[in-house]
Each structure stands twice: as C-alpha cells, then as structure tokens.
C-alpha cells in the first residue's frame, strides 16, 4: 500500500537533469509521465488536454532545469507543477469564474463496476469535502504521495496535511456509512 521510497539514485537523476543530461531527462519522463498523466486525466476527464499538459510540464522542467533542487522531492515538484498547469488550464478555459469551482468531481471506481448509484454517492461524498481536505485526500489516496510530498505540492505544513487527512477521513466515514454499510465502533 505504501508508495515506494524514493530510490537513492533519485537525487542523482535530478542532479544529472540539472546538468543537462538528456538521458537522465528521458528516464525522468519515462518514470513520471504516466502517473502525472493519470493525475491530470482524473481531473480533466479528457485524454488530449491531459496529454498536452504532461508535455507542457516536461518542456517547462527541461527549460527551467537550472532551478531544480536536488534536495527537494522531484515527485512533489512535478505534481506541484502539474497542479499549477491544471489551474491555469481551467482559468484559461473559463476566465470569468475562479479556477477552483471549475475543477470537476474526481472519478472513482468501485469494486462492483455496475453499481452506479453507489459510485455516485462516493463521488458526491468526495466532492462535498472542503477543497483543502479533498486535495490532500486525493493526493494521498489516488496518487500515492507521502505526507511530506503533499505538503510541498500544496505549500502547507506536514501537520496541516495530517489534519486535513484526518478530517477528510472522518467526513467520508460519516457520509458513506449507509452507502457502504460500514460498521463502526460505537
């Protein structure tokens, strides 16, 4: 369940990319393009813009490679950049409204694929979470990021991540009690 620890070679990879090593950059792309695409696709619900944003993201990484910080988690850096690109994308698409309200509901999948009603409840419960809690929860549950990584993606403290996570879980437990016929203590 726990996401893999960043391999020791990860900082070396970042150092190499920073130094303009194209092969290192290729490895970075092959390692992260797919998960980042998944992250963007789940929010955009469309293949092409998600593909384009992944492309744009890596173009930016390469062009700004001098600013890479080998002491910072590259994964967190990439998700942070992806998050910004997505917000820009929604802002451009609809400049009148704020970007935040436009983020669509997260798509989930239940074990019984045919149970639409149940899935709708789950997605609604997720959508009803306060935004900060939802972001934290999704990055942890859907994208497998560590608390420390989520903290740097969203620019908040690890303590705040923990608090959001706990509150999100509590709310979801309450919301989905009947839907999932969950038996809780008490």
């Amino acid at each position: 369940m726990s996401p893999p620890e960043s391999a020791p070679s990860e900082d070396q990879l970042v150092v190499a990319v920073k130094g303009g090593d194209e092969e290192a950059f290729r490895r970075l792309y092959f390692q992260y393009a797919e998960p980042l695409f998944g992250f963007l696709w789940r929010r955009l619900n469309q293949r092409e813009p998600a593909e384009d944003l992944v492309q744009e993201l890596f173009v930016k990484v390469w062009r700004n490679r001098a600013n890479l910080d080998p002491n910072q988690s590259i994964k967190a850096y990439l998700y942070q950049a992806a998050n910004h690109l997505m917000i820009d994308y929604f802002r451009k698409k609809n400049p009148v409204q704020g970007a935040q309200e436009l983020l669509p509901e997260h798509r989930t999948v239940t074990a019984e694929e045919d149970n639409f009603e149940k899935r709708a409840h789950i997605e609604k419960a997720l959508a009803d979470l306060p935004e900060a809690q939802r972001h934290v929860f999704v990055l942890s549950r859907f994208e497998g990021l560590r608390y420390t990584e989520i903290a740097s993606v969203l620019n908040i403290s690890v303590k705040t991540v923990e608090t959001h996570m706990n509150r999100a879980l509590k709310k979801l437990r309450h919301q989905l009690r009947t839907t999932l016929s969950l038996l809780f203590w008490g």
Partner: peptide, 25 residues
C-alpha cells in the same frame, strides 16, 4: 475503514503512449 479506503479507489487512466510522448518532447 479499510473498506472505505478501498471503495475510494481512483479510476484507471487510459494508457499513455510514452514513446510517442517522448518523441514529441
């Protein structure tokens, strides 16, 4: 809680063609 966690699984994204993507990049 485990069941709650599992029921909140993300939807699998369609496959991404990494080679085409890399060529573009």
């Amino acid at each position: 809680y485990q069941r709650l966690w599992q029921s909140l699984a993300p939807q699998q994204a369609p496959p991404l063609d990494l080679f085409e993507g890399w060529c573009r990049l």
